[in-house]
Write a protein that binds this DNA or RNA. Structure first.
Length: 288
DNA sequence: CAGCCGTGGCT
DNA sequence: TAGCCAAGGCT
């Protein structure tokens, strides 16, 4: 009744991108690092940082033995640097509670800092070949289009959507894991948010959205965050000063970076509260 | 659960 | 050009 998985799997076998964390001999740790970095950051920007991390910290224990500040520094400009903190914290849990080995079950993975439903399912699936619904923004868009004739999925995952994803998940662990990777890949390179390449799509003839004439999205408004002038931008600017310095930075250097005192102080306080910065002595700041 | 958490490339 | 968007998680 539904050839979708089979057709997408065939396409993937031939067209998948050659990514480091997919190569034969990759480790669960490499997969895990990639998943953290890929949370809201494009593949092209992740590639060089991922390689540097794996060279420097080939195992979770190697990272756990470093300071969290080194993780933040090596994160560079990937964005959302709390992910670096959480990855370091997860590595510490793996070293201390899992014998240094990335756990292989969804439940154990989900318990790690920075690992939510998607990342737990992705690591269990890609690194250990387990059968899980892996519902990321790509898969959600592919399913919305092919199965429900909608241009985009709703802002939040619904029960019905999860059930629908489960209904097309292949039965075997091996095929399910391959489907997870393949459906994500299709969304990433063909069934994209803007300008989908339907002319190259392996399942265009099965696609409900295409059959309906590619109608424009008409669901609940999808939120687009502002950035310029926000606390996020201010935090980024302050953190960049410290990250790019090789010794502690005086408060004055940070004050020069943002002209609104109230917002700057709020941002600095939140960076300290998050553990992204440390006040090493009064008025002097460094990575933790 | 809606809002917050970075950054840069593309159209 | 100014949005739009990118393999989410946490509170």
């Amino acid at each position: 009744m539904n050839d979708l998985p089979e057709r997408v799997l065939s396409w993937y076998a031939e067209h998948q991108r050659d990514l480091p964390w997919r190569r034969p001999g990759t480790t669960p740790w490499s997969v895990m690092v990639s998943e953290f970095m890929l949370q809201q950051t494009p593949v092209a920007r992740v590639l060089p940082v991922h390689e540097a991390w794996l060279d420097r910290w080939p195992t979770p224990s190697a990272l756990a033995d470093e300071t969290s500040g080194e993780a933040v520094r090596a994160w560079g400009r990937l964005g959302y640097p709390r992910r670096a903190l959480r990855l370091h914290a997860a590595a510490t849990v793996i070293r201390d509670e899992h014998g240094g080995e990335v756990p292989d079950t969804y439940e154990q993975l989900l318990a790690l800092p920075g690992v939510g439903d998607y990342t737990a399912a992705a690591i269990a699936s890609f690194a250990f070949g387990r059968r899980h619904v892996v519902l990321d923004t790509n898969v959600r868009r592919v399913l919305a289009r092919t199965l429900t004739a909608a241009e985009f999925a709703a802002p939040a995952v619904t029960r019905a959507e999860r059930d629908l994803a489960g209904s097309v998940l292949p039965g075997s662990d091996e095929d399910a894991a391959a489907w997870a990777a393949a459906s994500m890949e299709l969304g990433a390179v063909i069934c994209t948010a803007a300008r989908p390449a339907c002319e190259r799509c392996p399942v265009v003839d099965l696609c409900a959205w295409h059959a309906a004439g590619r109608p424009a999205y008409d669901g609940p408004a999808r939120k687009v965050q502002d950035y310029a002038g926000t606390d996020r931008q201010c935090r980024g600017r302050l953190l960049a000063v410290v990250r790019d310095a090789d010794s502690p930075v005086p408060r004055g250097r940070l004050e020069a970076e943002w002209h609104l005192p109230e917002q700057r102080d709020r941002a600095l306080a939140s960076l300290l509260a998050d553990g992204l910065l440390a006040e090493v002595e009064p008025g002097w700041f460094a990575l933790p």
